[in-house]
Amino acid sequence: MEKAVLTVIGKDKVGIIAKVSNIFAEKNVNILDLSQTIMQDIFTMIVLVDVEKSTIPFAELSDEMTNLGKEMGLNMQLQHEQIFDSMHQI
């Protein structure tokens, strides 16, 4: 399994999950976990995915998510899970 984390930060609106999960489904990326909260008045969503069987390279998938974020006026970023693990876990 090759885990990655999508973070979505911005203003809540209709269809965020639909659009995000649509792209993931198209690219054969499995969603493992999903949580959304309001943190300091800002909508935040965190999606844990398995990108191992993705049909496109990670860099392209990451660009696609960033672009979707731009379209929707949200800050979206896909990063390998490693970066969070190494910063917060010993």
């Binding site: 973070t7 930060i9 976990d33 943190m39 965190i46 693990d85 917060h88 876990q89």
Partner: peptide, 17 residues
């Protein structure tokens, strides 16, 4: 999720802001 949302957002904020 192994890591809490706060931790993940903390990292993202450190980089972006």
């Amino acid at each position: 999720m192994v890591l809490s949302s706060e931790k993940i957002i903390e990292t993202v904020k450190m980089i972006q802001e």
